[in-house]
Design a protein around this nucleic acid. Structure first.
Lengths: 207, 207
DNA sequence: AGTCGGATCCCCCGGAAGGGGCAGGAATTC
DNA sequence: GAATTCCTGCCCCTTCCGGGGGATCCGACT
């Protein structure tokens, strides 16, 4: 390895940033070149410092980690984003990879695993926390099964809308909405819209 | 202040524990006497080390922070629990205080605030993150409005049960369930059960 | 003793939801 | 160009839900 891996820490919790800095300071070949506490400044800082790796929390106030990841990928493609999050929610991994993240690791991961992940993504390879594989396989089915339209409708159901209201909002017929809802229920293996919404909220398919 | 404040760190994320240890090592009058990564060992360690303060994360695998707080309060009442969490969800603060926590502070709080909070609860006083006050006032209404029975029913609705199914499960008549549901809808200002469940899940009134 | 909230149960009713099948058109893929 | 997927729409039918009245019982609080 010719030179140090430069990396940027992004997390809205100071205590996490400190912990990370401390952890990484023990690895001689890793150098922290900056910190940010929200998505927007993470993007800005990445453009200026051009680190090899951005260690990015997903949930943050303001611009979240996924959006920041997208922008970094677009503006500074040579930088790899490693998502670092406490949430092993089903959909986050999928959405993270879609956003262009090179790696995904849980905060509960042991120290060594984190270092390995950083090295991997710095080399341009992908890294996904092995602990995620089971939930991943279970769930991508679930989220991916739903079409964009179906997710859109599910989201409106979660706001308490009736079929007629959804139809009005989307400028389609009520019958079409019923049709979509039937498909949603079948795919999520729910038997009422209420159950479907509960599943979707728990799995973060919708917000 | 006669002697150092002894404190125990409880968090399932290693990176957070490291950050906390680092932060607290800078305060000369605070001494970290142990760490735990789940609720059960937190309780056990508290019984042995009897620290002044336990800095406790709420969400952890296995026994969660609230349950651990209850047990610590029962078994080692002279120890004060300071809840330290990333989630400013409406119901957590209320439930935390019910569980016997002396303080509640967010992970995004600045360094100084954390130290202040630790000192406060070490003296036996309460401390609640000022940032929480607004959400607190808004929300306790919502959760407290619901009776235990109503929450129980709402939880079952979130699993997709119909009125009849809920009635069967709780050994009550379907009419009673309908009655409860009507009250739930009125209290949460929802117009369908689906909306009520969505609200409750988002506000963590149910899981 | 009286009042209040909570839990339980009952009736009625209109409208909504759930379940089934079916089908055209557009876009994509092979 | 054939196949597939998705969005869209329509039919019929049964069940469930939401909203409106009520009522009774019990325990807790005052």
């Amino acid at each position: 390895m010719p030179r140090d891996i430069t990396c940027l820490i992004v997390d809205d919790h100071e205590v996490v940033r400190e912990g990370l800095r401390l952890s990484l300071s023990r690895a001689s070949h890793i150098r922290v070149v900056g910190e940010a506490s929200d998505g927007a400044s993470a993007v800005a800082l990445t453009e200026r410092r051009r680190p090899n790796v951005v260690i990015m929390d997903v949930r943050m106030p303001g611009m979240d980690g996924l959006q920041a990841t997208r922008e970094i990928n677009e503006k500074v493609p040579e930088t790899s984003v490693l998502l670092f999050t406490a949430h092993n929610e089903r959909s986050l991994l999928g959405r993270g990879l879609e956003a262009g993240a090179k790696g995904y690791i849980l905060k509960e991961a042991p120290h060594q695993t984190l270092l390995r992940a950083i090295e991997k993504v710095a080399e341009g390879e992908g890294y996904v926390d092995p602990a995620l594989m089971p939930t991943f396989l279970n769930s991508r089915d679930k989220e991916d099964m739903l079409t964009a339209r179906e997710r859109e409708i599910l989201q409106l159901l979660a706001d308490g809308m009736s079929n007629v209201e959804v139809a009005g909002r989307l400028f389609i017929s009520q019958e079409t909405v019923k049709s979509h809802v039937r498909h949603i229920l079948a795919k999520l293996e729910a038997d009422t819209r209420t159950h479907a919404v509960a599943i979707a909220l728990r799995e973060s398919i919708i917000d």
